[in-house]
Design a protein around this nucleic acid. Structure first.
Lengths: 251, 251
DNA sequence: TCACATTTGTCCGTATGTATC
DNA sequence: AGATACATACGGACAAATGTG
């Protein structure tokens, strides 16, 4: 039995676990509960809401999947408030892709549009610390490449850093989602050293253009970069090493 | 975010309900289960996987929130396969917004970029049925407006239709998310008749430009439209009717 | 290394609500 | 109206994990 705060509104079609999860969510969204805060144990939550433990567990599953809490077992464990909603968005986008509803062509063309806009903003707004982070990224990537290691993570990170430098979290979310998709491609067929090096070179040229605030040059290099990436991925699709609609449902 | 795939390890760190949900998800992603298909009852699923019902229930909550199934009560009910993952993405983005991590300015500037790209694609690819749907939309909106009704839903729908006409589901997802955000603004302060009419007029001019495949004119009108929308929303923010940075607290 | 407490993970039995026939 | 089949929900019980002393 829950108390109605608003008159007339919350007709109790809601299932019990939905009420519980939305109450807790409300506390997080309103800032009463902050990332890092520990929630009471399942049993404690259950007794406070006057519901069974099973109900609380289902509510926690929802909050967990939404990215609001994570749960740890054992002594000192329990539900902890987190804020990883963005990652969950990326993972749902991945699901959509795996259902075969999105093609590589489509994701690439969306990416081009968004990253160009990002690049535009970055050229305008980037400060020294943004530049430094980007430069450190390419340096790290080279270091790995020279030791014969792959640098997929570093190269994806470059695009994430770029998005952050745009100062627009909406872009960050979208790029995060797109990068998650591309990572999934690559984990099936890791890029070789040559591919790796070419990507770093592209990144360096883009970074160079940003430093010089040369918009035209930046657009040219990023477009060329995307075309390279797309062509490589498409050749993998053609070789049948990547299936669009049936990839590991791990995660 | 390390994703080092450890050799030797994966054994059983997975919880049982995660195994169950990912098994079912696999069946959906691979096309064995299609939208509309009914799954067995909880008890049946439990017995087939040799787990308890609670485990199945938690798995179903995950699939439900992800948008893969919906559950119906009563006779003939049970879990049914759906494909509403896109909507779930939008709702998570809304959560992020409500946490105060996104401002109106940022969402608008992202929107401008994406809708311009969409408009570009639409001018190139739209066929007669797309045009017809858009025209029907503005007609419906006028009809409501003339009866003194508001037409917020119709006006938001216009942008969704536009996204669909671009033939790129990635854009559809992003616009869906953005529209969900904007609706949230509007539900706090409904637009008046005048605003409504101006929006429809803008839509008609955009539609007209699409029909004539006049790219330049289309871009001009859509930019003007966005500026109007942004100004109106911002005046609401200024009046304090919408709290921008901590909107979640008011919801 | 060995208990020990805490907390999640899992299962079972049972009761109730709900929608259809 | 009654029977049926299903989801929903509760409480009890034990196993497994995790950290402490």
């Amino acid at each position: 039995m829950q108390q109605a705060k608003k008159l007339f509104s919350p007709i109790d079609n809601k299932r019990a676990f939905e009420s519980v999860s939305s109450e807790i969510k409300k506390l997080i969204l309103s800032g009463v509960l902050k990332p890092g805060d520990r929630l009471p144990s399942e049993a404690e939550i259950a007794s406070q809401f006057k519901v069974g433990r099973q109900t609380v567990r289902e509510a926690l599953r929802i909050l967990e999947l939404s990215g609001f809490v994570s749960v740890q077992k054992g002594y000192g464990g329990g539900p902890v408030v987190k804020n990883t909603v963005i990652n969950q968005i990326a993972s749902l986008l991945l699901d959509t892709f795996q259902m075969g509803d999105i093609s590589l062509e489509q994701i690439t063309s969306a990416r081009v549009v968004i990253e160009k806009a990002i690049l535009d903003a970055v050229i305008e707004k980037a400060d020294q610390s943004d530049i430094r982070r980007l430069r450190e990224n390419t340096a790290r990537a080279w270091e790995r490449a020279e030791n014969g290691l792959l640098c997929l993570e570093e190269n994806l990170e470059f695009h994430r850093l770029l998005a952050k430098a745009s100062r627009n979290p909406v872009f960050v979310i979208f790029i995060e989602a797109i990068v998650a998709l591309l990572r999934n491609f690559h984990t099936l067929q890791l890029p070789d050293e040559g591919t790796c090096g070419r990507a770093i070179k592209s990144h360096e040229k883009i970074l160079d253009s940003i430093i010089k605030r040369d918009r035209k040059k930046a657009m040219y290099f990023i477009e060329r970069h995307f075309n390279e990436v797309r062509d490589r991925l498409q050749s993998l699709v053609a070789k049948g090493e990547i299936r669009n609609s049936k990839m590991g449902a791990g995660l």
